[in-house]
Design a protein around this nucleic acid. Structure first.
Lengths: 160, 160
DNA sequence: CCGACACCGTTAGTGTGACTAACGTTAGTC
DNA sequence: GACTAACGTTAGTCACACTAACGGTGTCGG
């Protein structure tokens, strides 16, 4: 059917993926998200960090100390996974985990001075990585991109 | 530090994620990609299909029959995973898998009439799902969004 | 006061998607 | 005819989102 068409194209040994697929926003999203994820993960690994570390440290810095459950909700990390993340952060002395005297079910997590320093560093690293990620876009386009993503995400987050 | 600021905000019981995190394109991407993935996966499941099925069927339809290795490259599915996908497609008689007489290492995969019908159906389903995914955007914005994604992905795909 | 219920942190496990390693088989190449 | 490379296939790894269930703790209604 499209066999003839395909034969006309300059099929110079490179196997192209179908247009249909290429155009689907869902596919573009997942592919780009994968690339982006790799970029970020590898970049952070170079400074002995992970995405989740950043999420937790940022939460602590912006909203102050909190329980693990609070951090979970703010950072979007499941409380079951939060345990391990906090272990890693505590190992590195970036965070202090102490039982809450007011409610003995909870742990109060506090960011340390070293944690704040680390957070600043991560911010810098992430800025650079995002520069790489968004390299082909002009500043205006980057804003536009972020705004579009935000609107879409907000739309699909409402009601859950 | 930002504790005071945070306290000023209308913290009406809802735990917000830090602005820093919210703004990061990488996070927006991964979050949205997750939502999108779920939407698509669930939508396709309703018609007994998966994303991979669509990718393979679309490849076959646009470029004609091919070996599993060709399909792999075109659809971005690893050849190790392609085996299972083709098993599923063959089970449903959407595809025919026959040894290539010209090169007995290969299988030649051909889309069936039923497969073509199924592909049309999937296209319709995906159109609807993308309507849902991109609901908050105007047609112009959707184009813009797809174009931005494409440019970014192209940039990060070149050289690999 | 106490029993029902909800929340806390933690452990273990599930499912999926991207990816690697290795195998036997078959084709080309010198 | 030996070497190398590609093919399909099987098995397994790794990270990530997510669920289930546990003991310990607070809260609230009767």
């Amino acid at each position: 059917m499209n066999r003839a068409e395909a034969a006309d194209l300059p099929d110079d040994g490179v196997l192209k993926t179908p247009e249909r697929l290429r155009r689907r926003a869902s596919r573009l999203l997942s592919q780009l998200s994968m690339r982006s994820g790799r970029l970020i993960t590898e970049g952070l690994a170079r400074v002995d960090a992970r995405k989740w570390h950043y999420a937790v440290l940022a939460s602590l810095h912006e909203y102050g100390p909190g329980s693990q459950a609070e951090l979970s909700q703010r950072s979007g990390i499941y409380r079951s996974d939060m345990v391990g993340v906090l272990n890693e952060l505590a190992e590195r002395d970036l965070v202090e985990r102490a039982p809450d005297p007011a409610d003995r079910r909870r742990n109060v997590i506090t960011i340390s001075a070293q944690g704040r320093r680390h957070l600043r560093r991560l911010d810098k690293v992430l800025d650079d990585l995002h520069d790489e990620l968004l390299a082909p876009l002009s500043p205006a386009e980057r804003d536009q991109f972020v705004q579009l993503l935000t609107r879409l995400l907000d739309h699909h987050t409402r009601g859950s």
